[in-house]
Structure formats: structure tokens, C-alpha cells
Amino acid sequence: MRYMMLMYSRETPEGPSPEEVDYLIKTHGALIAEAKQKGVLISVEGLKSSATATTIRSQDGRAVVLDGPFAETKEQLAGFYILECRDLDEATEWARKIPTSCKGESGCIEIRPVADLPRPPGAA
């Protein structure tokens, strides 16, 4: 079963410090290496800050382009992993290892099973 791990973390206006960036590169790097080595990594990406987000919202049948993320919350979507796991317990084990924020303290990981939808013809 594929699981998507959505990383939410607290953003600061000044962004992460050089030490925090170092920490993130190191911990994510180790985790990605481990997931690759065990053959469970399907995909992983980090996102630029929510200040760069644009939302397209459908209003009265028109698509309206808005500045900013969909929800004004303290914790913002910061990136995701997609891993192939046997069950939720295995997914949880992986999720525990994901560093959740620049401060290493706040933030959370939401685990969502990926739905098996039929692929359009020709899609990989």
C-alpha cells in the first residue's frame, strides 16, 4: 500500500537559519537514503514557503486566482514523502523518523493512504 506523508511545519518570516537548513538536509538525506535502500521510496519533495503559494478557487463557476495558501493556519504544508508500506503501522514507523520542522520541535506528519484510482490510458 502506498502512503503519502504530508509534512506540516511552522513557518517563520525569516525562514530557517543556516544551521536549521543543515539539520534538515542531513536528517532528510539520511531518511531518503534509508528508504531508497529498503526499496520503499516512491517520491519525496520539499516545498517553498507558503508565501509563494497561489490558490485557484472556484467561485460562481469561475476560477478565481488568489494569493496565498488555502487555509490560514499556523502549520503549513512543507513537503511530502510517498512510501510503499505493508500497513499503517509500518507507515507510522517511517513517519516518526521524518523531521517535522525547521525548529525540530513543532509540526506534524499526516499519513494518508493513496487511493488506487484507474489510470487513464497511456499514463504511466
Binding site: M1, Y3, C85, R86, D87, L88, D89, A91, I111, P113
Partner: peptide, 10 residues
């Protein structure tokens, strides 16, 4: 079923 909660003794 959908989230794959295992049926086993931890």
C-alpha cells in the same frame, strides 16, 4: 480497511 490498520499482535 482503507488506511491499512494491521490485523496482528504488535
Amino acid at each position: 480497511k482503507e488506511a491499512g490498520i494491521p490485523y496482528e499482535v504488535p
